[in-house]
């Protein structure tokens, strides 16, 4: 039986201390004042929205600032907001091994008239950016300039489309929608297009596979 002690309310989460975030914001506004679009704090985490053009210089400055020394690029990722202009957030998560500072940088790119947006690579600042940028290119279709070998990292090299975009359906494009075809009784043929697999060949063309159920394979 649940006793009364189990029903005590959850304590609110203490806001973690992030003493160097202010210094980071001060440095960025001092050096790139016009490019700092906004500074947001949520749950103790500071996010600085930067103009995409200032991003690489800002990263360089944060890495080399002697009091901050953002030496470790933890993560780069993207978020797709299809109704918004600009459409994509690119998020950089930085941390300093020496000073224990942490900050999140954000740049916004893309939109109606820019379906294949570009942003400068930060591989020159942190080589760690390599695979994170390839992953974003692969899954969001955002191109990173100033680096070579932009290729798909996770999806097959002949894949079409960028799966983490919000307009890419969860079930994918190659399968009919809905791909499970509803509930068709076993003794009835499947509706056209359902249960068919599309073979992708190495030269990029597609061959429809045979519908096994309609061949009487029961």
């Amino acid at each position: 039986m649940a006793d009364q002690t189990q029903l005590e309310n959850a304590r609110p989460l203490a806001t973690p201390v992030n003493p160097l975030a202010e210094a980071t914001v001060a440095l960025l506004t001092d050096r790139f004042g016009a490019s700092v679009r906004s500074v947001v704090e949520h749950r103790g985490e500071t996010t600085v929205l930067l103009a995409p053009t200032a991003l690489v210089a800002a990263c360089q400055a944060l890495r080399d600032a002697p009091t901050l020394r953002y030496s470790l690029l933890e993560d780069i990722t993207a978020v797709d907001w299809p109704e918004r202009e600009p459409r994509y957030d690119i998020i950089y998560q930085l941390v300093s091994i020496e000073t224990r500072a942490s900050i999140r940088l954000k740049a916004q790119i893309g939109g109606e008239d820019d379906p294949d947006p570009e942003i400068a690579s930060v591989m020159g600042v942190w080589p760690a950016a390599d695979w994170f940028e390839l992953e974003i290119f692969d899954l969001f279709g955002i191109r990173f300039t100033g680096r070579d070998d932009l290729r798909r990292l996770l999806m097959p090299t002949d894949w079409a489309g960028h799966p983490l975009r919000k307009d890419y359906p969860l079930t994918g494009f190659a399968l009919p929608d809905p791909h499970w075809g509803g509930q068709t009784p076993l003794d009835q043929p499947l509706p056209p297009g359902i249960g068919q697999l599309t073979l992708r060949t190495s030269d990029g063309s597609e061959q429809p596979n045979l519908n096994r159920r309609s061949e009487g394979d029961r």
Binding site: G141, D149, R151, T157, A160, F173, D177
Partner: peptide
Amino acid sequence: MQLEDSARPAALDVEESV
């Protein structure tokens, strides 16, 4: 339905990558 892809990258070519 097949998604139009204007930016299909080149396949990962062994010769190219090495």
